[in-house]
Design a protein around this nucleic acid. Structure first.
Lengths: 262, 262
DNA sequence: GAGTGGTCTAGACCACTGT
DNA sequence: CAGTGGTCTAGACCACTCC
């Protein structure tokens, strides 16, 4: 015998999948569902919680339960890396026009609000290992937030690390007030003589922490994509690592792998 | 004033993050937590549900609540595509040795259990569009499940589509009993004269559907990675599309982007 | 059988939304 | 103010685990 709250959830889920309840539609009030299914309120609410956790409905206090609308996607491609590399040696006037984020989103610089904080940290454990540096090495930790001017939530959370010694010869690279830097990280590295050879990106997914859900304004029933970007220079050194947290319900990461011809 | 169940969840979450409760540790019984926090059982259970949905704890009926251990990762790289292409023209004896999954996991062919089902479907809506084919075009839909011999859950769910006309000249390609095919899809396409030029992979994340959670044996508080792989041949045609569902808590997708030298 | 979590009932009171 | 969802209490009974 199926559990009562599962029966109710299954029934409502079918209605949504079959399109009898369309995105944006309000579900019957919880008290109506109590009548319809002959169960008590907590049981009905348990069913609705399942659907919310699956990302199928939004609960709105005082208004009702609504079938969720899919969010429009932001595409992030790996073509951005070559594009940024090509830009890195151009004159500042060129570099100021547009950045990698604009390249991805198709937006203008003025549509975006940008915010950066730098601080020094010591490389520890997993991070020291990823850099191939001894524990305790000083890193510059740079936190970035970028959002649409018209929205309140940033569309990603970025924490980037650079070995301090590698970039210290250009003091501007230690100064957060120089952000947003025209030409991005690859131009910053170019100013201290570093050329990138390749970029590795590792992607996983998990539910958001409460802090992430808060900052990205994620509704319940969404996941985050975690992307760790590791940049190697032409001497094989790891010169930068970025951890990027992306809302799973609005982000699509696109990677193109070219193949050698026969 | 913070809500009671959030206070309890915050308190337990802090203990877990600070390491006072380590992975594998059992939390105090729910009745003990009722005493400790001076709240009723449903309130305590609400707090524990939050932690479960965040993937921090596992609830085990009759045993207790336990701090979750991280699962070991399966790595899927984009180097597999060039690797598979190189293999595609080799003699069958070579191709039989090992496949792309073994290449990713480092396992032997005998460690894996493989299962495939083929059927014909009509391209509709989004799928027809992705192929650039008219709606109603016949596709071969191929469903794959691969799992470790020692485990019961597959480590991914794959649905692959091929335009039927493109591959029908080799009847073996319509025969599911020929799977697992030595050399994989790229060799299958090679037998009908198709060479791949590039592969695009789009990645998103979301909570699992109940069906996915069931088949992949996902505990609550995990997410799935969705990967859509689109293969283009040397004439620019889309010749294959695969939708892959991967458990977010055990899969890491690694993409390497090489950059042109200055 | 003792201990633990899972399901469900019945109902009180609070908080938010829209008229 | 009416309608809706959010929080919390109090307690019954069931199901699973382990000794």
């Amino acid at each position: 015998m199926a559990k009562a709250y599962e029966r109710i959830a299954d029934d409502l889920r079918s209605s949504i999948r079959a399109g009898q309840l369309k995105p944006g539609d309000r579900l019957p009030a919880e008290t109506k569902l109590v009548e319809r299914y002959g169960k008590t309120l907590p049981t009905v609410r348990e069913a609705l919680r399942l659907l919310r956790d699956e990302g199928l409905i939004d609960k709105q206090h005082g208004r009702g339960n609504f079938v969720r609308r899919p969010r429009t996607k932001v595409l992030r491609t790996n073509a951005r890396h070559q594009w940024e590399k090509d830009r890195a040696r151009e004159p500042e006037r060129e570099r100021q026009q547009t950045g990698a984020t604009e390249h991805d989103t198709g937006l203008q610089v003025n549509d975006l609000v940008f915010y950066a904080v730098y601080r020094d940290v010591e490389a520890k454990g997993e991070l020291a290992e990823a850099f191939g540096l001894p524990e305790g090495t000083t890193l510059v930790e740079r936190s970035y937030r970028t959002r649409y001017a018209a929205e309140s939530a940033p569309f990603n959370l970025v924490t980037s690390y650079l070995p301090r010694d590698l970039v210290a010869e250009n003091p501007d690279l230690l100064d957060e007030t120089r952000e947003p830097w025209p030409g991005g990280t690859q131009n910053q590295l170019f100013t201290v003589g570093i050329e990138l050879d390749r970029i590795e990106e590792r992607v996983t997914a998990r539910p958001p922490t409460p802090e992430e859900a808060e900052e990205l304004e994620l509704p319940a029933g969404t996941a985050v994509l975690l992307l760790r970007k590791t940049s190697y220079d032409t001497e094989g050194r790891v010169v930068e690592i970025s951890d990027v947290t992306l809302p799973g319900d609005r982000t699509e990461v696109l990677f193109t792998t070219p193949l050698e011809r026969w």
